[in-house]
């Protein structure tokens, strides 16, 4: 199941998984997008692909619809949470509805999805949960306040999840992502190069059986983020990014 599986990284993951012959449930906020991708994957790769629409900014999630979709599918062995939401004006002082939508889409609803599907995933001898964070969550900044907080919370949740599932057949992986060449970064001036979502999807698939916990992608972000974390406040507050 690929959450956010219609564009950007989610689409790249769905295409990579389809190429490897996996049946898929594709979930995004607009059924037109997931329908188009599901049809394409079925026709190109001969896999079963079920399109679903789900607005992650809303709560509670209609999880029964996802259960119904899974009823006609092979057992669930993977949950990839590639969805995310970001918007202008995400600063301290924003409206509660805006804050709630960002928190739901980037943190709470993703955790609800994991919680909901965990029993299914644990029943399988080998299964896989992947979360995606952002280098934007390394330190709190003026912009992306709720988004970054949610992503940092999500990373913490995944750490707990990995701990909780240690020794089980469920691999828990979390990628901290730098800039990707998707529509999210289109039109933005970025300080460092953008990575290809297709190459990231290849890397995620290649490492699906690895027990590494947290990984930075591209890897050069690891030292960059480590340095950012060490910057004294007097220096950090002067940075504008």
């Amino acid at each position: 199941m690929v959450i956010g599986g219609s564009s950007g990284l989610g689409r790249a993951l769905a295409e990579r998984l389809a190429r490897a012959g996996h049946s898929l449930v594709l979930v995004s906020s607009d059924l037109r997008d997931t329908q188009a991708l599901a049809a394409d994957l079925a026709l190109r790769w001969g896999v079963q692909a079920v399109p679903m629409a789900l607005d992650l900014a809303q709560s509670p999630l209609p999880l029964a619809a996802l259960d119904a979709a899974l009823a006609a599918m092979p057992p669930l062995t993977g949950l990839l949470l590639a969805a995310g939401m970001n918007r202008e004006g995400d600063e301290p002082g924003q409206a509660p509805a805006s804050f709630a939508a960002l928190t739901c889409a980037n943190y709470t609803n993703l955790c609800h999805l994991v919680d909901h599907f965990l029993p299914r995933l644990r029943r399988e001898p080998r299964s896989w949960i992947v979360g995606f964070g952002s280098v934007a969550a390394t330190r709190g900044r003026t912009r992306n306040a709720a988004y970054s907080a949610a992503k940092r919370a999500l990373q913490s949740y995944f750490e707990s999840l990995r701990h909780f599932l240690a020794g089980s057949g469920v691999k828990v992986q979390f990628y901290v992502l730098g800039y990707l060449d998707t529509n999210l970064a289109f039109g933005q001036r970025t300080l460092l190069p953008r990575a290809s979502p297709q190459r990231l999807a290849d890397a995620v698939y290649r490492r699906k059986d690895s027990d590494f916990g947290v990984s930075y992608y591209p890897r050069f972000w690891y030292p960059v983020c480590a340095l950012l974390r060490q910057l004294p406040w007097t220096v950090f507050r002067r940075l504008s990014f």
Binding site: G84, M85, N86, R87, E88, S134, V135, A136, T138, R141, R143, N144, Y147, Y179, N183, L184, A185, F186, G187, Q188, L191, L228, F241
Partner: peptide, 13 residues
């Protein structure tokens, strides 16, 4: 580090 918004009208020159 500022990941851009997913705004539907994301434009660049």
């Amino acid at each position: 580090m500022g990941r851009a918004s997913g705004d539907a009208t994301a434009l660049r020159t």
